[in-house]
Computed example of a mutant assay.
Amino acid sequence: MKSRKKKYHVLLLAMFLIVAVLVTGCGNQKAAENKPAGQEKLKVAFIYVGPVGDAGWSYAHDQARQYLGKELPNVETTFVEAVPEGADAERVLTELAMKGNKIIFATSFGYMDYVQKVAQKFPDVTFLHCSGFKTAKNVGTYFGRMYQARYLSGIVAGKQTQGNVIGYVAAFPIPEVVRGINAFTLGAQSVNPNVTVKVVWTNTWYNPATEKDAAKSLLDAGADVIAMHQDTPGPMQAAEEKGKFGISYNTDMHSFAPKAILTGPVWNWGPYYVKTVKAIMDKTWKSEQYWGSMAENIVDLAPYGAMVSEDTKALVAKKKESIVKNEWDVFTGPIVDQQGQVKIAEGQKMSDKDMLEFNWFVKGVEGTISK
């Protein structure tokens, strides 16, 4: 009798286990059926020439990277900071591609040739190179018409200067930087024809001490406003220490020199990153040379300092409106170079190709461009 009961209990236990397994299996199948397609996140990487804490160029891109992550939760972003514009860039780009990143944003001009080399090895990865001019099937370039905001900031500087000497701390003598200096100078001259802009080259993107010292040399030479194409607030701090004024760059740097900074051209990369990643995900992206304008809000001006007059603000607003409406653009003739030679005839507008190859200074700039 006990043996028969024992067999009965064993049979019941076996039946229970079978039912449990079947129920669990159904549950797992249902979970698998309900698992959203493409749940694995798309990996997107960024490489920066400076540290993300530079308060300038790399910081602006990293703010946009974070914006991308918030706007597209199905995207996983990563970054590598302080990557020199040399052979090390090729190594970093290669490693990022090998780690499964399907989109890589290379955010400095000097990465251009390395992007091209690595892109050939990884045809299934899309590369976007900031400020460059070389493309491929899986490589696009992107930039903003910062010269428009530069011109407007020049108006502010031209109205503020008392001695008509403005200093410009410049990074490298490449077309992007030359273009910005020229636009800034034209803006200043539009409200103050007597302005001269003195240029000092640092041959750095991120070197706080060197860039601050360059600003000091310009202040010692009589400049009462300092503009810059650098990634640190050093030049602005130098201006504040001397009781002078500054035009910052990249981001709103007011907190670093609140008594000096009048305004400054700023970048807004976030919407571009979101739009581009969406297009790649939707398979609608095609290689292009994107050059966004002020109308697209990729470039703008930082908030004004308290020392900027309402008259100056009104002048800037009026000119900005004509730029945004595409009624006028910065490099519209007549424009002459340092030697007084007419480079752009009256009524003519400089082509994008010529702007991207800028290798001469407008009249009123004191400085040379090394070849």
Rank of each mutant, 00 (worst) to 15 (best):
L356R: 06
P173Y: 11
K318T: 12
D329F: 00
G167N: 00
A171N: 03
V336P: 10
S58H: 00
W205I: 08
V324C: 00
D311R: 09
K102P: 05
L93S: 01
T263D: 02
E288N: 15
I166Y: 01
Q66T: 12
N28F: 14
Q348V: 12
F143L: 11
S3G: 13
K275G: 09
W360A: 09
N164V: 10
K30P: 05
A82K: 04
G333F: 06
K313R: 08
L11C: 14
S255N: 02
P84S: 13
P51L: 11
G270P: 04
A87T: 09
S190N: 01
A20F: 11
I369N: 03
H129K: 03
N194Q: 14
P258G: 07
L128K: 10
G69Q: 06
E76R: 04
K6H: 12
K363H: 13
V225F: 03
K159H: 11
E346F: 05
E366D: 12
Q189N: 12
A89S: 08
G270T: 07
D300T: 12
S153D: 03
F256H: 04
T141S: 07
D54W: 01
A14V: 15
S255V: 15
T77I: 01
M294H: 12
M281K: 12
L22Q: 09
D220E: 08
R145C: 12
I280T: 00
V365F: 06
Y142E: 05
K275H: 13
T251Y: 00
V83Y: 02
Q29I: 15
Q160W: 01
L218A: 03
T202C: 10
N359C: 05
L12M: 12
F79V: 15
W201I: 04
H61A: 01
Y206Q: 07
G333H: 05
K363Y: 10
L12W: 14
A82L: 09
E76S: 13
S309F: 08
G56L: 02
Y48P: 05
S217H: 12
A31I: 12
V118C: 06
K259G: 05
A302W: 00
